[in-house]
């Protein structure tokens, strides 16, 4: 019950914000009868209506995971965001090995196999992407090798 209501409330606010920003869209002098504002406003209105229905008539709650699992998911997200920033400056191999290892540990909870799969995936995928598929990745930070 509560989950749907909370989500509905969030969606309602986002939809209202969306409509508010849609009214600020600049119109050009070449306006057609509908213009660039109407369709986004319509979508926002339908979304807000759906959100209201969710608040009034919520479904039963899903099985939310434990707080520890939420922690693990939060760590995963942080690691993935860090990986997104690291990929360019640090090259492919090292960030990938670390990220894959951490993800692997999150699923299996066993340290040693996670290290193996992190390193194995990193090197294996690098060989696949760079040598076989020729996607042109950098293995290491540019300063390391010529």
């Amino acid at each position: 019950m509560a989950s749907d209501r909370i989500f509905g409330l969030v969606v309602l606010f986002v939809a209202l914000g969306y409509i508010a920003s849609a009214t600020q869209i600049q119109t050009s002098f070449l306006a057609d009868p509908v213009g660039p504002k109407a369709f986004p406003i319509l979508i926002g209105a339908v979304a807000a209506l759906c959100a209201l229905v969710m608040i009034v008539k919520p479904d039963p709650d899903p099985d939310w995971p434990s707080l520890a699992t939420f922690g693990a998911l939060a760590i995963t997200i942080i690691v993935l965001v860090a990986y997104a920033y690291a990929l360019k400056p640090l090259g492919f191999i090292i960030p990938t090995a670390i990220t894959a290892g951490i993800l692997s540990y999150q699923i299996s909870n066993r340290p040693l196999p996670s290290v193996y799969s992190g390193v194995g995936l990193s090197v294996g995928l690098f060989l696949l992407f760079d040598k076989v598929l020729d996607l042109g990745l950098f293995a290491f930070p540019k300063g390391w090798i010529g």
Binding site: Y83, L87, T99, S104, P113, L121, L125, L137
Partner: peptide, 28 residues
């Protein structure tokens, strides 16, 4: 095992999207 498969899927997804635009914004 899923602890090899799922990290693999993630890495392939990252490389795929990264190779499209080369921007970290798309990854985020």
């Amino acid at each position: 095992p899923p602890w090899v498969l799922l990290p693999g899927v993630t890495m392939i997804s990252f490389v795929g999207i990264y190779s499209l635009s080369g921007s970290y914004f798309d990854l985020l």
